[in-house]
Design a protein around this nucleic acid. Structure first.
Length: 675
DNA sequence: TGTGTCCGAGACGAA
DNA sequence: CTCGGACACA
């Protein structure tokens, strides 16, 4: 404990010891940002601050987990009493604790992204707007953006400039009605309701703010409007706020983050101290050189250059591949070679990509090469059909108003309730402003629905009634077992999936939900069903955690990689259309894409290899593609005329070197491509 | 009502 | 290619 400060450089030490009042730490990638924030918390504890008074907020579960672990290793088990978590989780707990003050039902349901989409579709249907006129996905993300910019549906209506805007604003209104009617909150609501609590209930704000005397915010460049105001409300009495961030790593503008927040910090909190961390302890000079060359093409930024404390290393390689299969087998071959020659462990490697579907090719290749890997993010455990089915039963039990849960399980397993009846039920429910469940019941009672669907409804009601009895016991794992038994879900799995192996796999997924519930109840003695579901909605797959100790290659998106570091990094798919991503570029977001590239480069400690493909399978067809403009920036060259146009000039194909890879031997490395 | 099949659109990122 | 939605049948 005593030498907490000894291992820090001057700037870091200043950041750690400046404990009171507002403090801005501008920390470039790899300059010990997490180290500073955790040592700072440990230092506070050493100074006599109780851990319960410390609040540390991050953006991802992964960052929160890592911070908690590092804090514990610095300050011991007492550090578990500190509040460390994501904004969303922190807010969700606040809301739950003060549900009454917010007029929220205690067992409010969570509207996850697929429910959001159904809600938007429902709103469009109600408004008689064709999905061809307004793409539900576009509307949904626009609504989310509104909410994260604290723009109400009335304001959205006022500022609408064309028909599309108006339709989306009306959809926004309906969407909100839909959520309230079904006692649901979406992810954005966590922030908004917490903010309402803090800004409208002064007594409660005082009480909550007094609990956290020292507040630290990680990745401050990613805060959006509600997050900023939540923080402001929490610290306004004591102003003990430390924010850490890097404008060059702002990659969440699409979620409403506003880089200006970090640039304006000193304006928002007058008299703030300011510390800059510029010595990079993570990467070699070559890697930082590459990072600097790319990021300096962004016009609006704090001028800063990372300086390597490690010195020179090996050259950053840029490799052209024929297609994504070759790319994958090249990377797999290299990793295997280096591990077999005992240069590295699997755990030292990361493969970073821009989109969530790129990992597919890599997964297949790594598996067939017998290389252990873990895929971070991606289609999560909670998106699996069988898991969603089981959770839908639980959601309906916790919140009978949960329409999408009801629609999901109404006929799963099949019990004679077809699409026709469900459509009528939903129609009626919308008409009456009532829940689908109650509408169904009244229609059955009135004889408007009879025969098979009515019998099915009775059967379903019986299942839920019995489950409800078990629910009263408060034993979640047992409740889930009961639901599985009542629905005969095992048989349903066997009915759907032909082969035995798949059946086992799916059933295991179901059993894992039981395990989740068991471990939730071990941790929260009085945890009820609603809070279990609420917590679950914010969980990424916690099973990663256990496997973390294993020696595995990490496969993930750039967004998921922020804050992490690996000895050897493969940054893959560096093509126009992927990085920068086509859609992001079209929306004028090339600068943010460049920051993503910067984030990717700066994850590497010792060795960085960048790959791109000459062609790539899209929509089942092989399509030519050409190297990213960022590769030209890396080489300090200008892309040829017409580079950024949709179709590639034929010259491109020749300019792309395509080294082939043989699996067993180490592939020839070609430092630098001939761009 | 349940099941099968065809068709067309499609994919950015996280909590 | 791969999923969801629409449609045709039993």
């Amino acid at each position: 404990m005593t030498d907490l400060l000894a291992s820090l450089n001057d700037a870091q030490r200043r950041a750690v010891t400046c404990t009171d009042g507002p403090l801005l730490v501008l920390a470039g990638a790899g300059t010990g940002k997490t180290r500073v924030i955790t040592v700072r918390a440990a230092h506070l504890m050493q100074q006599g601050v109780a851990p319960e008074q410390i609040l540390m907020v991050t953006f991802t579960n992964k960052a929160a987990r890592e911070m908690q672990e590092r804090l514990c290793s610095l300050a011991g088990a007492a550090a578990n009493q500190a509040t460390v978590g994501t904004f969303h989780r922190f807010c969700m707990r606040l809301i739950r604790e003060h549900a009454a003050a917010l007029d929220l039902p205690p067992g409010f349901g969570i509207c996850d992204s697929s429910d959001q989409l159904s809600a938007v579709k429902g709103a469009l249907r109600e408004l008689r707007i064709a999905e061809t006129a307004v793409d539900p996905r576009a509307a949904q993300s626009k609504i989310s953006l509104f909410k994260n910019a604290l723009i109400s549906s009335e304001q959205a209506m006022d500022q609408a400039e064309d028909d599309w805007d108006i339709m989306v604003a009306r959809c926004y209104t309906k969407y909100e009605e839909h959520l309230r009617r079904h006692r649901m909150l979406d992810f954005d609501d966590f922030l908004l309701f917490a903010l309402r609590l803090l800004e409208e209930k002064e007594e409660l704000r005082k009480q909550i703010a007094a609990r956290y005397r020292y507040v630290m915010v990680d990745e401050y460049q990613d805060t959006n409007a509600p997050q900023y105001r939540i923080v402001r409300a929490l610290v306004q009495d004591h102003r003990n706020l430390c924010v850490v961030g890097d404008d060059d790593q702002s990659i969440y503008a699409w979620r409403g983050a506003d880089v200006r927040r970090i640039l304006d910090f000193e304006k928002d909190f007058p008299g703030a101290e300011n510390v800059r961390l510029e010595t990079n302890y993570r990467s070699t000079a070559e890697i930082l050189d590459a990072a600097n060359k790319v990021i300096r093409n962004n016009p609006k930024r704090h001028d800063k250059e990372l300086i390597s404390a490690l010195g020179a290393g090996s050259t950053v390689s840029v490799m052209g591949m024929e297609d994504e299969d070759h790319e994958a087998s090249f990377v797999a071959g290299e990793i295997r070679y280096q591990v077999e020659s005992q240069e590295e462990r699997y755990g030292d490697f990361a493969i970073l990509c821009r989109t969530g579907q790129q990992p597919r090719a890599f997964e297949a290749e790594l598996r067939s090469a017998g290389i252990p890997y873990r895929l971070v993010g991606g289609t999560s455990f909670f998106d699996r059909k069988e898991v969603r089915d089981v959770l839908a039963y639980l959601r309906l039990l916790a919140n009978p108003a949960d329409e999408s849960a009801f629609l999901r399980i109404a006929n799963t397993p099949p019990r004679g309730i077809g699409k026709g009846s469900l459509d009528r039920v939903v129609e009626r429910a919308t008409e009456l402003g009532d829940t689908a469940w109650r509408a169904f019941r009244s229609m059955v009672d009135a004889g408007e629905i009879s025969g098979a669907p009515a019998r099915g409804f009775t059967a379903l009601r019986e299942i839920l009634n019995q489950a409800h009895v078990v629910l009263q016991e408060g034993d979640l794992p047992r409740l889930i077992q009961e639901v599985l038994a009542l629905t005969n879900y095992r048989a349903e799995i066997e009915r759907i999936y032909g082969d035995h192996e798949t059946q086992e796999l799916r059933w295991n997924g179901v059993l894992e939900v039981v395990d989740f519930a068991a471990s939730f109840q071990r941790k929260n003695k009085k945890g009820d069903l609603a809070s279990f579901l609420q917590e679950l909605s914010l969980s990424t797959d916690e099973r990663d955690k256990e496997e973390d100790s294993g020696d595995q290659v990490t496969l993930m998106t750039l967004h998921a990689a922020k804050g992490l570091e690996f000895r050897r990094v493969y940054l893959v798919g560096l093509e126009e259309g992927i990085l920068p991503h086509k859609r992001a570029a079209a929306e004028g977001g090339v600068e943010e894409e460049r920051r993503l590239m910067y984030v990717g480069i700066t994850r590497a400690q010792q060795d960085l290899t960048i790959t791109f493909c000459g062609s790539r399978t899209r929509f089942g067809k092989l399509q030519p593609c050409h190297p990213s403009r960022f590769l030209f920036e890396l080489k300090e060259k200008t892309p040829p005329e017409g580079w950024l146009a949709t179709d590639a000039p034929s010259v491109v194909q020749e300019a792309v070197p395509v080294p082939r890879n043989t699996k067993k031997k180490r592939p020839a490395r070609r430092p630098g491509s001939r761009l």
